[in-house]
Design a protein around this nucleic acid. Structure first.
Lengths: 326, 326
DNA sequence: TTGTATGCGTTATCAG
DNA sequence: CTGATAACGCATACAA
């Protein structure tokens, strides 16, 4: 690949002249029209492309943002990743994708690696729970946006109000006549799963409970364990758990109500009554990109303030066909 | 952040000594045990971390692989991305994620940008259809693996045999008594969509057809258009089109059979007969990582040879409840 | 065993 | 208006 030096040789100018011309902008206007044309033409025919690694080393800006999520195979994060990538790309940034797999060791490893890679910022679905723990690993000045799971003391964050979200779900279940539930809960270290479980436990009598990773497999195990008890509803603290439960229901024999967070694909077709409290993914994505861009601006730092969104409820037709105890 | 120079100053050694010590491996053993300890200790307390951008500039290796897909919001690619990221990470590589959104302009833009960013290799779900067009954009020596959609003349590629896959689906539909179909087809520039559509058209009488982007929305439009015709089955050239069709079926009134490629979530619960010809995503992911790693080895280049996998058929209970014309 | 010097491709400063 | 020249942080050939 041709370098600035090559172009300089071909045009009998110096490396700095070429740099100035190709930089475009004010420094380019200070070059005579003649040589400017000559340089640009030479660069064009040579197919010159700046080496962005060299540029990064010099400018200390890589125009790369890292997105560290817990499970990119979850379509919820997939959708998020697409929106974030799209938006960042429009603003001239590339995306480095990392998957912690909900494992703290993996998360810490990435948190150490990424700054070495020279990322300009990090959008982060944390497993780590305190600002202090985070500050020990990350450079203090790295632009950071915490996504989905708030951390006390960190203002650059975007998440959904879990109390609103959970109470919304519970209200609907309650109106539907639910008194007892079985609970399939994700890891309780994760604030979203914990808060959802807590609120559901406050509002209903929990007659069975399974805890485990927020994966379909946990849902499937939960289904088996819930076979004997007869809850009015099964509540899952996220969509994957819900899918796991549904996966296990091959035939429909007086199905329990399913209450769950975020969307279940095809739910309105399923012959099983389902109500979901779903977060606004596009707004979350837009919010965290905006917070990132705000920090990337060298100029007027708007003060960090969390963006807190609300959920809306979605039910399927099967849900409306039956009402318990009525 | 401390640099090699800083550590050298603190230990009263030179920058190259420090570099050698921290490099570990053979060059480190050529340093006296005493100074080695001293340097390592100093690096530890200073919290030294190598600047990987500087290293990349020098070594011309970034340990970063780009994955350019057409739609990361499609769970099929989400799963793929997770497996690829996981595997690459185990081998010491990071992943840069790019989403072409099935737009050629966007794809070309990324293809020009990524080599400038210094990626070590590219895993690529192409929209571009010829090796020639690709070679005009990409550096000839960039390790490249073409995923999912073969390009003539490119040996480093991993994909599924679309003929096997489509005939598998058609066999099952035929055995089930299907004679006429309606076809919801993705973009015909894309070889997978085109081949699937061709084969289905050879084997059945197509009495209606909708073409469009491989998104749910196209499926929904297709459903409306198919309302009047009465095909024995509706065939979709990918999962998203299938989901779109199903999305539109709120109530089940003598549903048509659905035939589709790749998985429909929750399909075995749906009261609609479905048969899918699904690709082996883990094998595809493993295959393309292996092909990438093979090219990254400086030593013995195994000769490029496409990895071609087969699909397997999956049906849901509703499918077995009814048989047409019998 | 260790230090010196050079270069990777840019940007930026400082002369002229 | 333009050209040397010095970083950026690291790896490495060559000396010592």
């Amino acid at each position: 690949m041709p370098t600035l030096q090559d172009i300089a040789n071909q045009t009998r100018t110096s490396i700095s002249t070429v740099s100035r011309v190709l930089a475009g902008g004010p420094s380019a206007r200070r070059i005579s029209h003649a040589t400017r044309q000559r340089v640009m033409e030479a660069a064009r025919v040579a197919g010159y492309r700046p080496n962005l690694i060299a540029r990064s080393l010099r400018t200390r800006k890589s125009h790369t943002i890292a997105l560290l999520v817990s499970d990119i195979a979850n379509p919820w994060f997939g959708q998020m990743a697409r929106l974030i990538e799209q938006s960042l790309h429009r603003h001239g940034y590339s995306l480095m994708l990392c998957n912690s797999g909900e494992e703290l060791a993996s998360e810490v490893e990435y948190l150490q690696l990424l700054p070495q890679k020279g990322i300009d910022g990090l959008i982060f679905v944390p497993l780590t729970r305190t600002k202090k723990a985070l500050m020990e690993i990350l450079p203090a000045n790295l632009p950071l946006v915490v996504l989905d799971r708030p951390i006390a003391g960190i203002g650059w964050s975007v998440y959904t109000d879990q109390d609103q979200s959970a109470h919304l779900l519970c209200d609907i279940l309650e109106n539907h006549g639910v008194k007892t539930i079985a609970l399939a809960a994700g890891p309780q270290q994760i604030v979203t799963h914990r808060r959802r479980a807590e609120i559901c436990a406050e509002r209903f009598k929990v007659i069975a409970r399974v805890d485990g990773p927020a994966q379909r497999e946990t849902g499937r195990m939960a289904f088996v364990k819930f076979l004997n008890v007869r809850p009015d509803a099964i509540v899952c603290t996220n969509n994957f758990l819900g899918q796991g439960i549904l996966d296990s229901m091959t035939e429909v024999e007086q199905p329990a109500l399913i209450g769950c967070f975020d969307e279940i694909p095809m739910m309105h077709l399923l012959p099983i009554p389902i109500v979901c409290s779903v977060q606004d993914v596009p707004m979350l994505a837009e919010g965290c990109v905006n917070q990132m861009l705000a920090q990337l601006q060298p100029q007027p730092q708007t003060s960090p303030k969390p963006i807190v969104l609300t959920s809306r409820a979605v039910t399927n037709p099967a849900f409306h066909r039956g009402r318990i105890n009525s």
